[in-house]
Structure formats: structure tokens, C-alpha cells
Write a protein that binds this DNA or RNA. Structure first.
Lengths: 161, 161
DNA sequence: TATAAAGTTGACTGTTTTAGTTGGTTAAAT
DNA sequence: ATTTAACCAACTAAAACAGTCAACTTTATA
């Protein structure tokens, strides 16, 4: 199991997409600038996110990416699964052949851990993240830092509830 | 964050140590044979486990390793922390400087996940694992497979409760 | 229609980690 | 003295990570 910047970047980028939705497609260049993630690396990640039908793309000028489902229907586990090869803590991929055909001494422990993590992450949707105070204040800071129009910011968007 | 064979090996080896306690020190060669882990790799792992005072060693013939505390006082999180550099899901090591000095959009999410995992793993002790049916049946199989005396097996040991 | 913005794809690269191996040295029991 | 086993350090092959680079295709718009 691994959770590295790859999975973190993917979730961050998807959240950025959710935050800046409503003004049409969001370009990877914008996400790159706001979140400090290399553009070329984002391209790789979004190729996977698109293959997993979490986002859809619009080509040409003014194009970019959009969420392919409602914010409450995309959870963090799905995003990480899309770019990583799943959050599996076992060494055998749940097949149970960890020690030459048989299960190893700690097989069930890692199964339990895997489902624990997956449960936790799958219960958090992009909508849930958007609602969090800490997320909103960071988003606000990021919008101030750049040439974002006030219209484009989290506060003025319909997100304000 | 990463949980690979390194951490899994460490927990498996510690559990093997717990299972075969009571017959004096357990040699790494025995663990290597039973659990299918390279001897030299075990040496590296046990160097860290010893530095973290989870095990103590006895040198010379008949020597080996023993748990340095009671089985119920060693939990899975401690073992993984000893060989890995902790189960931290953040990229900044909880410092909060993920995006040039400030926290990134998803910082708190990874903090939450980290404590979730740590909580889960720290509540499972070696004694807990020993009590599990699946662990005991695997241990039994492993003892049958080798030249282990019946005295040495999990069932005949005082573990039977 | 030319141009520029943006996605799409594939190959490549430096670095780190993993999972070992090799080859020794010490310490202690026989 | 010999053997057993812990200790230790250096090295390695393979993989993954994080990212770069270059060459496309699609599409809006001037």
C-alpha cells in the first residue's frame, strides 16, 4: 500500500476542480499554478482520472476539465484508486497467497486495515471537503494570491450556502 | 505514507517471536525459514526493532531475539513505526508547510487519515493477534511444515488459554 | 483560414526506496 | 578452539516516484 504525493495531488486537483466549477472547464495550467503541481505531472494524473470517468475534458481554447459527476458522488477513495493501484495493505492483493500458496501469518490483519482505510476515505466526498472550514480558507488564500477574479473565488461562488 | 513488505515483515516477524516465546530466544534463521523472509533482510529490520527497544537480543549459540515487553504492551503501530518512518499520510510531516510555507488544500484530510490509521493499528497488540483464530491456524500449519517439536507449537504452548 | 489554447500521448530521466546480497566482525556457549 | 548466532557496513538490481520533453490533435476565435 502506498499513499504518496501522487494520490494526494490527485485529490487536491479534483478538489480544486470542484471549487472552481461553475465557470466552465478548468485548465490544468490553472490548477498547476494554484496548487503548485507540475503541469506535465497533472497531465498524467488526469489521463487516469479520465479513464476512470471521474472527469471529462473539453478540448480547444477555453477548454479544460470538469467533474463527470456531482460533487457528492465522488469520494476520496475513488480518486486515489484511479491514480494509484488501490489502497490495498496486503501483499497478495487479497488473493491469500502471501506465503507460497497459503496465507501468511498476518494476512487478515492487512485485510482489516485495508477495509478500515477504504471505509474512511470512501465516506468523504468532494462535497464534504468543500464544506470544511479549513479547505475554504485555504482556497480563499489561493484565490487571493493569483489573478483570480472575485467572481471566480470560493466565497462569491454559490458554494457560500 | 507507505506500508510495504517492510512493515508487514516486521509485524509478521514480531508475531512469530511472540508465538514461539517460552522456549528461550528465537533465532532469525528460524523466523526466516518459517515466515519465508530473507535472513539478511530480517537482520536489518531487527536492528531497527532493537534500537526502538521492542526486542532484546542474546548472542552466541542458542541465542536469538526476545520481546522486550509483554505481548499486550506491543502494538502493531509501534512495530511499523520502528521500521518505517511512521504512518504519516501528509507530505509535510504534520508541519503544515505543504505549499511553500502554508498548508495545502488537503492538509487536514491527510492528518485525519493518519490518525485514523494510527488509532486502528495502535489498538491491536501482539497479544490480540495471538488470540485470533486465523493467526493460530496459520501458526499451526507453519509448525507442522517444519521440524518444530510438538512442544514448540502454538497449541501445546501455554498460549492455549 | 491561420493561430493559439488546450488536451493527448509516448518516451525519457534523475532520484529514492525496496528488498535484498556479500562479506565480514564480535560475543558467548560447548 | 570451534561453532553459533547476533551485529554491521557496503553494495546492488529493480521498481516506483516525480517530473521533463517533444510531438501531436482538437477546437474556438480573430
Amino acid at each position: 500500500m502506498r499513499l504518496t504525493t501522487k494520490g494526494r495531488y490527485a485529490v487536491t486537483a479534483m478538489l480544486d476542480l470542484a471549487i472552481h466549477a461553475g465557470n466552465g472547464p478548468v485548465s490544468l495550467a490553472d490548477i498547476s499554478e494554484r496548487q503548485g503541481i507540475s503541469l506535465s505531472y497533472l497531465e498524467q494524473l488526469f489521463a487516469k482520472l479520465r479513464r476512470n470517468e471521474l472527469v471529462r475534458s473539453v478540448r480547444g481554447p477555453g477548454g479544460g476539465y470538469q467533474l463527470n459527476r456531482e460533487q457528492q458522488d465522488i469520494d476520496v477513495a475513488q480518486v486515489i484508486d484511479a491514480v494509484n493501484e488501490s489502497v490495498d495493505a496486503t501483499g497478495c492483493g487479497h488473493t491469500g497467497s502471501c506465503q507460497d500458496g497459503n496465507i501468511c501469518l498476518t494476512h487478515h490483519l492487512w485485510c482489516d486495515l485495508s477495509s478500515q482505510i477504504h471505509d474512511f476515505l470512501s465516506k468523504i466526498s468532494l462535497a464534504d471537503l468543500m464544506a470544511r472550514k479549513d479547505v475554504r480558507s485555504v482556497a480563499e488564500r489561493q484565490n487571493r494570491g493569483h489573478n483570480a477574479s472575485f467572481e471566480d473565488s470560493l466565497i462569491s461562488a454559490k458554494v457560500t450556502v
